[in-house]
Design a protein around this nucleic acid. Structure first.
Lengths: 136, 136
DNA sequence: CTCGTGATGTTATCTCATAACACACCATCA
DNA sequence: TGATGGTGTGTTATGAGATAACATCACGAG
């Protein structure tokens, strides 16, 4: 997966660790604030560059509709290629679940009909989770 | 579609008009800059509020991955309900096509399995359009 | 006419993200 | 072993995207 010469360095590992600890989508500036083990914040480019790296390797995803980042819960975390991501996002409490994307093939087919070749697809489904519906 | 008491007022009409004129995704601050017929810019909340209204009625979509807005090219422009949106986005030239989303039912089913009820789904597929592939 | 809801105008500020440059690390190959 | 080139990091500064809060206005219902 990684291009030759790419390394899992300390800041990248640190950002991945923060994403994994959290388990839910995290804002970039939350990562920046929590970056230093000693409570020291990082500079924004440090974290954004790590996020770009992790996303490129399929170990993290950006959820654009809420401007947040999350560790990949699928097979990519184990070293497979970057993959299509699909998320269920609760608009009430923010709880987010990554699910299997529905039929990447149909998107590719529709794209081919329009002349496009697709590299990455993100599906973001907003609604309410069970707990928030029950809470009214 | 519209809630009782909601009106298509002048600023909303103006923003929709700008979106329709453009035909491609437009940045919010481009709308702000072009808002006045006389070249006067609008204040950000004017345009953001109009965009929120248009999106709520299914007449426009936000494409979060590129922070842009586009008039809906589907049936919603004619007055149907807000609908799932799917976009093909060229990472090279920015050309964007709205396509029929693949099987909203399968997303709803997957969401139900996780306890979620989905209100809005956006699919954003990034890749290259035909022209950009041919251009190398 | 008056009241309530929805819409607008305005100021200020907040959050998100990247450009640009200098320097450090590390494998490799002469 | 030391020159080299790609990759990564640190730092400063700034650009871009979006919203909070509050005052005022427009309009339809009663």
């Amino acid at each position: 997966m990684a291009e030759a010469g790419e390394r899992m360095t300390a800041p990248r590992r640190r950002v991945l660790s923060l994403l994994l600890e959290t388990g839910e989508p995290v804002k970039a500036y939350d990562l920046i604030a929590r970056f230093g083990e000693d409570g020291q914040a990082a500079k924004p480019p440090t974290v954004y560059r790590a996020l770009e790296f992790l996303e490129r390797l399929g170990m993290a995803h950006r959820i654009a509709s809420i401007s947040a980042y999350v560790a990949c819960s699928g097979s990519a975390a184990n070293g497979s290629a970057p993959h299509a991501a699909a998320f269920l996002i609760c608009d009430c409490c923010g709880a987010t679940r990554e699910i299997a994307g529905p039929d990447q093939g149909s998107i590719d087919a529709a794209a081919a009909g329009a002349g496009y070749v697709i590299a990455r697809t993100t599906i973001e489904a907003h609604g309410l989770c069970l707990a928030c519906r029950e809470a009214g």
